[in-house]
Design a protein around this nucleic acid. Sequence first.
DNA 1: TTAGTTGCAAACGCTTTGCCGAAAA
DNA 2: TTTTCGGCAAAGCGTTTGCAACTAA
Lengths: 129, 129
Amino acid sequence: MTQKRMTRQRKAILEILKDRKDHPTASEIYIQVRNRIPHVSLGTIYRNLSVLQELGQVQEINVNNNFKRYDGNPEQHYHFFCQDCGSVYDLYGSYQEELDQIFSQKNPHKIFGHNADFFGTCSHCINSN
Amino acid sequence: MTQKRMTRQRKAILEILKDRKDHPTASEIYIQVRNRIPHVSLGTIYRNLSVLQELGQVQEINVNNNFKRYDGNPEQHYHFFCQDCGSVYDLYGSYQEELDQIFSQKNPHKIFGHNADFFGTCSHCINSN
DNA sequence: TTAGTTGCAAACGCTTTGCCGAAAA
DNA sequence: TTTTCGGCAAAGCGTTTGCAACTAA
């Protein structure tokens, strides 16, 4: 990996991502970065998100295959997807290591870890019905 | 939902998907369907995969955001992604309902279910090193 | 007969990339 | 001064869609 520099653009993206509790798309981040740096380009957003991922400061989330979302929390944690409004939330609760052991015993592969995504109706949508 | 017809194309896609143990992409399916129906089009593959999903006969798998993969096994089951060769396998072992309960207690959302993807090195890659 | 389906090709939408001037270190 | 980075715009690429002809039921 080559030497990385902390540019204004990269710093802005990282700060915005750490501030937000939700998991914005690249273009949502773009809109917000433009408030600070009006002539920033979408290409710059994508390039920096990729660098920040390599550096382990940001996680990419696969909601579905339409577009990627980004998470400023690099810790291992699960996500919840609301089927009604499409929002993505972090879940409270710890990583379930037992799962890796259970499935290691039943399968021939060397399992290093897992991701889990929960789905249902979020608290906001429950209350607005 | 409107009435669905079992066309040659739809039948071919379904049969191919049920036969394969791996989880092909739309264009891999396209290549195989062309052996039976030379003038089939990619658009037809996509449209039928979408219909077969609605009918609950096929599952869509999000490997990463580059493209979708399809699974001819509509049962709830977990997947394993090999980080070395990129293959996707079905895992043996049952759905862990407890997970839904554990995280329902710790979070304000109504959880209906979850997906889990495991990763590591597959048995084939272990043996070839 | 008729409504769903197909092939073809164009359109889409998110993401990546080439180029060259700008700016971290 | 060197080398990474950014802005801009074009290209890439998997997926979707409009349309007229076709076909399962």
